[in-house]
């Protein structure tokens, strides 16, 4: 499943002309990585990783702990990239890659 979304993301990243669409595709790819890790720890029918009195099977907590940081860094990366694009648009009044070649 995450492979399919990854393919969509890469396809969009290469074919998109608008820089903002490129950033959106990058965040799609980033989300596929998160989805891949979370789903790798998923067990069908298991509970959330919270200790209860009963001894039942729980989902693997390791990928969830890892992905917390990935989300933070993803937010920071996206905001920085969009700020750069806004600055670029102020200077060149375009965000299309095909038009940026003119400058």
């Amino acid at each position: 499943m995450s492979l399919i979304i990854l393919a969509i993301g890469i396809f969009g990243l290469i074919t998109a002309d608008n820089l903002i669409k490129k950033i959106m595709c990058l965040s799609v790819i980033e989300n596929t990585i998160i989805l891949n890790f979370i789903s790798s720890g998923y067990i069908t029918g298991a509970a959330a990783p919270i200790l209860t009195a009963k001894d039942i099977a729980t989902v693997d907590p390791v990928p969830q702990a890892l992905m917390l940081t990935a989300i933070v860094i993803g937010v920071c990366f996206n905001s920085l990239a969009i700020a750069c694009i806004v600055k670029l648009h102020e200077k060149t009044s375009t965000v299309l890659v095909s038009e940026l070649h003119e400058f």
Binding site: I50, L51, T52, P61, V62, C76, F77
Partner: peptide, 30 residues
């Protein structure tokens, strides 16, 4: 009771430091 934070106990310090640095650098960069 949260097993995610148990797994997180060890790397928590490094992770917190990393998150703080990344966030501050992002705000500075913007």
């Amino acid at each position: 009771r949260n097993m995610v934070s148990v797994v997180y106990l060890g790397p928590r310090v490094i992770d917190t430091f990393l998150e703080v640095m990344v966030v501050i650098l992002t705000v500075l960069g913007i």
